[in-house]
Every structure is written in structure tokens, then in C-alpha cells.
């Protein structure tokens, strides 16, 4: 029976789609059967981030409207046999689907998958409501900036009033060098304000843009900093206790070396 997890943020551009693609990849690499669902109807992007844009025949709205069967719309990933994408419709709008449709769709997906990850659209309107309705768990993603944190707080409030299980937080695009000189809020600052459980910290990493250019999620290559961070989040989703790295000290060469040395035992454990 699958775990349905929605990734949402309120603000746009903080990394929902990138996180969905990478967590789906990391979970599938660990042998889980994963469906990633693009709930951003009208502005689909999860397909290009995953490099599967040329394979789309049917989409989520086709399934909901009964134009095709669910299996026909699911696209198998090129690299990982356990990973599937359900793309959003590009020529429709958010009102083509309602929360009941999404719950029904996800109940069907639950039968065949270990994880269903839903990429929510930005905002707090219909598209967000559709994305969150079927969720067993919600991941709120933010960057350490005032606008993103404010919107994350709004989302957390909405989730509470919708009586969803308390969401967990991913802080994305943290820049250790800026934190060090006091020009970016650190993890503790953001947690103090949002007061929810931390699920992961993803450092700013140029390899995200480069890998998205190629349509290859960065988590495929566990050597990048962001890729490692997404791998860690996937392990936490699977129930592993993974310590949070101290990015604050890791900005210099020595700090990075130290971080590398400290991360070795974790990697070792993961392989066994």
C-alpha cells in the first residue's frame, strides 16, 4: 500500500518540481516502486525535468475523464525500472480536476506503488487543493528567504486547518557561505519561525541547473552536494535516521573536507 506524499510550497520557484523528480529518483534507486504525479495542470514541467517529455501520449486529465486507462498514461522512466511519471495536461486548466478525482486516482495508484509523489502547483487555490487532497504526508519546501518562508507558513496554517498530518520541511538552496557571513537565514532561524519537523536541507548547487538541462535528476549522481542531500531525504522517508550535515561550517576547503570525512560512515552504512 503506497504512501502518498505531496510536495508543496506556496511560493513558486523554490524547487517543488526538482525535489519531486529527485526524491522519486532516489527512492526508485533504493528499490521502491515510485509514481511521480505532476499536478500542475496547464504548466507541466516534471516531464522535462525528468527528461521524459517526448514519451507523453496521455495525461492525468485523460485518466480522470476516462479517455484512457491509468496504465496507458503512466510513463516508464528511461533509467530506473521502478520509476513512473504521470504527466499533467498542458492544454487544460486546474479546474479540469477536483480533489475527489485526485483521491480516486491516487487510490488506484496505491495498489501498484510503494510511493506516490505529487508535485503541487504554486499557490493556495484549486491546483494546490487538488494536490494535497489525497496526501498521507505533506512535504513543505522553502528557501531561506523571507517571501518563501512567509508563504510556507501560510501553507502550514492551511494544512493544519485541513487537519492533515503535520507537514515536514525541506529547506532548499541554502548557501553556506552566505549563512556564514550572516546574509542568509540558517536552518535554525527557519525552523524557529516555521516550527515544524525538519526533513532535509539541500545546499545550493550549480549541478541542479546542469542536470535539469539534460533532463537527468541530480540524484542519479550521488556525488553532487544536492544529489547527496536528496538521497538523505529519501532515506529519511524510508525511516532511516540520517544526521543533518552542518553546512554552516562547510564553506571553506577545510570545512568541505571535514564534511566529506564525516559523511563517509553514512555512505558506508547505506551500501550495506
Amino acid at each position: 500500500m503506497a504512501n502518498v506524499i505531496t510536495i508543496t510550497s506556496g511560493k513558486g520557484g523554490v524547487g517543488k518540481t526538482t525535489a519531486t523528480a529527485n526524491l522519486g529518483t532516489a527512492l526508485a534507486q533504493r528499490g521502491c516502486k515510485v509514481a511521480v504525479v505532476d499536478a500542475d495542470i496547464g504548466l507541466r514541467n516534471l516531464d522535462v525535468v525528468m527528461g521524459l517529455e517526448n514519451r507523453i501520449v496521455y495525461d492525468l486529465v485523460d485518466v480522470v475523464e476516462g479517455q484512457c486507462r491509468l496504465r496507458q498514461a503512466l510513463i516508464k522512466d528511461k533509467r530506473l525500472p521502478e520509476l513512473y511519471l504521470l504527466p499533467a495536461a498542458q492544454t487544460r486548466d486546474k479546474n479540469a480536476v477536483d480533489p475527489k478525482d485526485m483521491i480516486k486516482l491516487c487510490d488506484q495508484l496505491r495498489e501498484d506503488f510503494d510511493f506516490v509523489l505529487i508535485d503541487s502547483p504554486a499557490g493556495i487555490e484549486q491546483g494546490y487543493k487538488n494536490a494535497v487532497a489525497p496526501a498521507d504526508q505533506v512535504i513543505v519546501i522553502t528557501t531561506p528567504e523571507v517571501s518563501a518562508v512567509r508563504d510556507a507558513d501560510r501553507i502550514i496554517g492551511l494544512l493544519e486547518s485541513a487537519e492533515k498530518r503535520s507537514p515536514r520541511l525541506v529547506i532548499n538552496r541554502l548557501k553556506p557561505s552566505m549563512v556564514k557571513r550572516g546574509d542568509m537565514m540558517d536552518t535554525a532561524d527557519v525552523l524557529e519561525i516555521l516550527a515544524i519537523e525538519l526533513l532535509g536541507i539541500v545546499p545550493e548547487d550549480d549541478s541542479i541547473v546542469a542536470s535539469t538541462n539534460r533532463g537527468e535528476p541530480v540524484a542519479l549522481n550521488g556525488k553532487t552536494r544536492a544529489g547527496m542531500a536528496f538521497q538523505n531525504i529519501a532515506r529519511r522517508l524510508l525511516g532511516d535516521e540520517v544526521p543533518f550535515p552542518e553546512f554552516n561550517n562547510a564553506s571553506g576547503l577545510l570545512g568541505r573536507l571535514w564534511g566529506f570525512v564525516r559523511s563517509r560512515p553514512i555512505d558506508f552504512k547505506a551500501r550495506n
Binding site: 528567504e145 523571507v146 518562508v149 512567509r150 507558513d153 501560510r154 496554517g157 549563512v179 550572516g182 546574509d183 542568509m184 537565514m185 540558517d186 532561524d189 524557529e192 519561525i193
Partner: peptide, 16 residues
Amino acid sequence: SSQVAKERLKLVLVHD
């Protein structure tokens, strides 16, 4: 500036 951000956020969130 990170401290300024935090204080401003705290204030704005009280009203939000």
C-alpha cells in the same frame, strides 16, 4: 541581514 530577515518575518507572520 539574516537577523533583519528573521525579525521582519516574525512580525509579518503574527499578522498573517
